[in-house]
Every structure is written in C-alpha cells, then in structure tokens.
Design a protein around this nucleic acid. Sequence first.
DNA 1: CAAGCCTATCAACGGTGTGTCGAGAAGATC
DNA 2: GATCTTCTCGACACACCGTTGATAGGCTTG
Lengths: 219, 219
Amino acid sequence: MPAVSKAKPAPNGRGRRAARASGDERERAILETAERLLEERPLSEISVDDLARGAGISRPTFYFYFPSKDAVVLTIIDRLVAAAADSREEALKMLAAGEPRAGLRQALEDLYGAFRSRRAVSLAAAELRMTNPEARELWSQVMEGWVADTAAVIEAERTRGTAPPGQPARDLAIALVQMNERVQYATFTEEAPSLDEDRVLDVLVDIWLRAIYGTAEPS
Amino acid sequence: MPAVSKAKPAPNGRGRRAARASGDERERAILETAERLLEERPLSEISVDDLARGAGISRPTFYFYFPSKDAVVLTIIDRLVAAAADSREEALKMLAAGEPRAGLRQALEDLYGAFRSRRAVSLAAAELRMTNPEARELWSQVMEGWVADTAAVIEAERTRGTAPPGQPARDLAIALVQMNERVQYATFTEEAPSLDEDRVLDVLVDIWLRAIYGTAEPS
DNA sequence: CAAGCCTATCAACGGTGTGTCGAGAAGATC
DNA sequence: GATCTTCTCGACACACCGTTGATAGGCTTG
C-alpha cells in the first residue's frame, strides 16, 4: 500500500483525505450510498463499483476519496459507535443513582435502541469484523468500554452490599455484555432461534438481574 | 450451474458426487487440506487453488469433487456438528438424573470441549455463516436443538418445583445458548475482552444456574 | 496574465480469484 | 478393441480489485 498521496495527515485515522470544497459532497455521497445499499444487501455483495456508481463517479475516482470499501464502512461504523457511546453515558448516570431494575432496563434499552436504529450498519460491522483487523480492533474497544462500566457497577453493588459475591465482576461483565451482543444480533437478523423484538429486553434484563443480584442455590 | 454430471443422486445433500475408487482419496485429501489450512489462516484467505494444490490436483479438477470452497467447509462442519450432537445427548442424560450444578457443568463442559477440540473448524463455521445461507441454515438447526433441550430442562425443573417461575423457558434458553456461543467464540479467538480458557466454564455455569434457579430481588 | 500548483477525474492496465468448457488419458466392461 | 465411465487439466470468460498516467479546471502568485 503506497502512501495515500502525501497530503495533510488525515484528521481521522481512517486514511481518507481531509477533503475540501466539492469533494466533500462526493465523500458524503459515497457514505450515503453505502448506507443505502447496506439496507438492501449484505456488505459482501456490495462492490467498490457499486459505491462509485451510486455516488455518480467512476471506480478510480472512488479511490481518491477512500482507500477501500472497508474504509468507507469503518467510517460509518465509527459514527454509530460514537452515537452509542453517548447512549452509554446517559445510561450510566441513570444506573448510578438508584433503582437497579429500572436503571438497568433503561441502560440496556438505550443501548439496544442505538443499534436497532441503525440495524443495517450494525450487521455490516459484524460482517466486517470477520475479515478486517481494524474493524475487530474498533469493536474490541467498544466491548471493552461496556465491560469496564458494567464491571464497575457490579463492584459498586457488591461493596454497597446490595449484590452478593460471586464470580469476578469483570468476568461476569464480559459474559453478560457478549450475551447482549449475540442476542441482539440474532434479533436483528431474525435468524432461526431468536428473541422477538418486543421480548428481548425483558429477557436480557432478567438474566442480568439474576446474574448480578441473585444467588442460585438449587436444592 | 449445469448438472453435476448425471451420476447417482449424491448420498449427501451437499452436492458432491458419490465418488469411487481413487477419487475417494482425492476427496479426503481435499478435506484434510482444508482442515490443515484452516489451522493456519482464516477461511477468507484460502482459495480454491490452495485447496487443489494442497490435494495435489489442478483447480479445474477440484471442481470435479466439490462445487465450491464453501461446499468443502460445509462438509467439514457437518461432521463437527454431528460429533457435537453426540456430546449433547451424553450431557442430557447426566442432567436428567440429578444434581443440577454438577450435571449442568458436565453438559456445558462437553459442549465446550466438542468445539474446542476443533477450534479452527468452529471459527470457519462462524465466518462462513456470514456469507453462506446454507451454513446459516445448518447452524440454525444446531442452535435450535440446544435451545429445545435447554427449554425442556427448564420446564421440567419448574414443574418439579426446583426452579422458580420467570421468563418463558424457551426465551431464557435462547439467550443462554446464544451467550455460550458468543462467549466461547471470544475465548477461542482470544479477542479483546474475553474469558480465559480456564475460567470460561465457571462463569457460564454460574450464570446459567442463577438464570434458571435464582430469583433476583434487588433491595 | 502566464506559470505553476493543487483538486478532481477517468481510461486503460495488470493482477487475483472464480467457475466452465472441451479435449483428452486411463482403466474397467462388453 | 470398441465403448463407457472416471478423472484430469489447459484455456477461456468473467468479476473485482487497486494503480498508473494523462488531463482538465480552478486558485494562487509573482
């Protein structure tokens, strides 16, 4: 991969140029085309040519704006992730101050909503993660954020004496966060065994509560 | 796709011919090459040519034995799934008769082991699921099997009075089974936040027990 | 304003991978 | 030994990728 022209050292790390003037519109057109096409078919069935044509330019010109198809999708995912991070902060405030059940429900609901509202992008992220290390890294950071927050909440509840001891808080957090990811993904794709859109949060909240606050002493 | 010669109507539905004599060895060679290469790199970085050369034949000859790279991997996954299904039956016997904690632990351990012992194939299955409908369908059936069994166990425990009521048994089962899939996948790939090989079962068993047998009444 | 310099564009090329077609070789079977 | 079946591959057509080099317009700036 030869240098991406010299240019200014890209404000965003994603490798697309700074972009100015009319080129800005083109760049937006590419991103919008990508989002539009992702509503229709999976990432693997979208070519660079599709993106270029959709944005009204030729394939080589596409490469003037983005170094690859993956870079386009990563830019889109970046935005989704940023939006979801805001949701997370909101949710944590609510959780920190009070009622566990209501707070947790609100938190998981916001999170679910953030991805539900951009279903196609969420699915593309999962697809890209399979083949693209950068996407893997990005998603890792996202997961790590939620795990850290969740672990902190669990620790706090245990210290407060409202939650009983058990598995290490971080381990519990990892499993719960990963459960949410998988269950939500299944719901989005409506794959074979999956939870209904309107049941998924009830079930997840219940498991979180039992895992965090419950003790299981089967007779 | 023109008819696969006429031949006998393939014993297996996967679309490869019945194969006889020396062709049998070739077919095995292809499958073994695929498994070997999957230990080294992801499915997306293996070409039909790699498989052909690995089996000592040319690319066109490969197509005499399998209609595509995907078909090879599906055949391999088929076998893994069959082996795992055996594990499942074993595990259920143990669960049906007695101690929930020990039984459940044993069940999840067997399941984990079945996929752990063929880590590369398990990861390839996950990768293929993203792009191949047939792989998706196959995996769906696998998940459905475990969900059905798990739901049955939960129902039974509730009827026996050993487990309290709660979310519908099937919904609970779906979330738990999907959690296991995701958590185990993360452990296999050692991705960013993931559970240690030797902690993963402790954590999963604990969550299952709390989700099934526990009630959560946060103060 | 002419000379230079960025931004933006694309035709054409070379490369990799896929799947098919048609022409055979090699070994049974009649 | 003629024929059929199994098995093999060279050569092709196609799709997609990423790069090169040439060009055209705008915006400085001396």
